[in-house]
Nucleic acid binder design. Structure first.
Length: 490
RNA sequence: GCUCCCGUAGUGUAGCGGCCAAUCAUGGAGCCCUCUCGAGGCUUCGACUCGGGUUCAAAUCCCGACGGGAGCACCA
């Protein structure tokens, strides 16, 4: 082993800086948006579009708009209006303006009327299935070719309540011959008789997402739109509206789909499980909500780094918890102080010594943070985990980390304090004395790990610590005789 | 069925005609260090979907096949 050149140690670990690709025509600033539907709180999937938009607005200057798309009264959770901004704030996404689409129905009505006058929208009273079947065959339904005056009158009837739910829809004409069936004529507004959580029964004609989005993206001056690739056809549809009005279109980007394994994301499922008591709430660790990630001790910076690294390619990707954990570990390792936690404790009394003392740094890389002092006396009772106890019984020796060595027996026998035992194959295991606190750790699968943690953890100022050889945990509740924590990752 | 998008290691990414016997991270294996199975250091495993073509030269361009995904909602 040659001596290494000390200057090499100074050499920065070559770390690639992850950078998003440039945006087209963004030199003079951008206006971008994040536009979730208020069906529940945000989940990991939403964090991608939020982070991407935020990153670009921060890079080029401009503004980021939060637009709550509540145009389907049947799929709204009123609580979401509050939860969404909270989630974004935790994520560190800076929103400049907030709009709620249910405040803007009059605006949408004005715009349909104009399109009707232009002959670009018709009001269809056909059976939905018939209309779709005709479209499939590139054929127009009878309503499509009615004169403009009649379309306007029909629309008034929609507004006046002369049509019931499902009896009439306003449809944007595109091109019935379009080779892509997904782009042929699409519904712009429909009648919904379900009361809206915010506007009650004041309105009954609701815009479809494609219509309100196109109108709002223009009115709000969007320069760039980043959305999932599942919206590709919606983009094509919305472009018809831009073209009819002669509006300048934003630059669109479509990133690939994200498959997030082993995670419940669907708000409807989560809501149901909360209702029947299976999940503890929107932050249940088994779900993929932003609130669950927060509870688990995932830092927003990790998510940001994750999505910046993933970029905006239109390839479909597999979300990797391992990768996210790796990034999170980078962030929390240095700030997380170390403590001992013993899962499924097994008791040992130690003979052959009156009192035993020891100490351990609170963080091995930061001696300046101080140390934990240990005193074991009386019957010299200590606990180690069931797993370590098993190994102890086989190897007949073990080292209690930062305290002393033990020879197997009942009671166990004090065996000095020589670290050489580690070279003989003994493991340094975490242990606690009687002076410890009952601890339960909520695991990502919803199970609970039980055990004892050393008392010093009660005085820790941070809520994120590492239980040595167990993993990082977020401390959620601490009383003098109990600690509750949530497992972050190894 | 029709239309669209996409195809680099287990995962994610870089590269976008020669500097690529392909980058970085994560992951696996191992060593060093450390009284943690963490961190750090080092080594190692591991990929251009396939087939044609264009070219002196292709992961990079073109065509085809195959594979994956999405849309064709009076959801967003």
């Amino acid at each position: 082993m040659g001596k290494s050149d000390p200057t090499l140690l100074v050499k920065e670990k070559k770390e690639r800086t992850y950078e998003l690709p440039e945006l087209e025509n963004a030199e003079n600033g951008v206006v971008m948006r994040i536009a979730p539907g208020p069906s529940g709180p945000l989940h990991i999937g939403h964090t991608r579009v939020a982070v991407l938009n935020d990153e670009y607005v921060k890079r080029y200057g401009g503004k980021l708009i939060l637009r709550i798309e509540d145009t389907n009264p049947e799929k709204i959770d009123p609580a979401a209006y509050g939860m969404i901004p909270e989630d974004l704030e935790w994520l560190g996404v800076k929103v400049d303006e907030v709009y709620t689409q249910s405040d803007r129905f009059e605006i949408y009505y004005e715009h349909v009327v104009r399109l009707i006058e232009m002959g670009k929208v018709y009001v269809c009273t056909c059976e939905g299935d018939d209309w779709r079947n005709l479209k499939e065959k590139c054929r127009a339904c009878p309503c499509r070719e009615l004169p403009v005056e009649e379309q306007a009158e029909r629309f008034n009837k929609m507004m006046n309540g002369e049509f019931g739910e499902g009896e009439a829809v306003a449809v944007v004409k595109t091109n019935l011959e379009h080779p892509n069936p997904a782009v042929r004529d699409f519904v712009a507004l429909r009648i919904v008789e379900h009361p809206h959580p915010l506007t009650g029964d004041r309105y009954r004609v609701y815009p479809m997402m494609n219509f309100s989005v196109a109108v709002d993206d223009h009115l709000m001056g969007m320069t760039h739109v980043i959305r999932g690739k599942d919206h590709l056809n919606n983009t094509h549809r919305q472009e018809y509206i831009f073209d009819y009005f002669g509006w300048k279109k934003p630059v669109y980007y479509h990133y690939g789909l994200v498959n997030i394994p082993d995670t419940v994301l669907k708000t409807s499922i989560i809501r149901e499980s909360i209702k029947n008591g299976e999940y503890s709430g929107w932050d249940d660790v088994r779900t993929g909500t932003v609130r669950a990630l927060e509870l688990r001790g995932i830092k927003p910076e990790s998510l940001r780094r994750y999505w910046v690294e993933a970029g905006m390619k239109s390839v479909d990707i597999q979300f990797s918890w391992d990768n996210l954990y790796g990034m999170n570990r980078d962030i929390i390792d240095d700030v997380s102080n170390r403590y001992f936690f013993v899962q499924d404790p097994v008791r040992y009394d130690i003979s052959g010594r009156e009192g035993i003392t020891g100490s351990a740094p609170v963080h091995p890389d930061h001696p300046e943070r101080g140390e934990r002092k240990y005193v074991v006396s009386g019957s010299n009772t200590i606990f180690i985990s069931a797993e370590d106890s098993k190994e102890f019984s086989v190897k007949k020796m073990v080292r209690l980390k930062d305290l002393c060595n033990l020879k197997y027996g009942t009671p166990a026998e004090y065996d000095g304090n020589d670290l050489a035992i580690l070279r003989q194959g003994a493991h340094a295991v975490q242990w606690v004395s009687r002076d410890s606190v009952k601890t339960t750790i909520l695991m990502p699968d919803g199970s609970v790990a039980e055990g004892l943690a050393e008392n010093a953890v009660l005085d820790e100022k941070s809520d994120i610590v590492q239980f040595e050889r167990f993993g990082f945990v977020r401390l959620t509740e601490r009383t003098p005789d109990s600690v509750k924590a949530v497992y972050t990752h190894r």
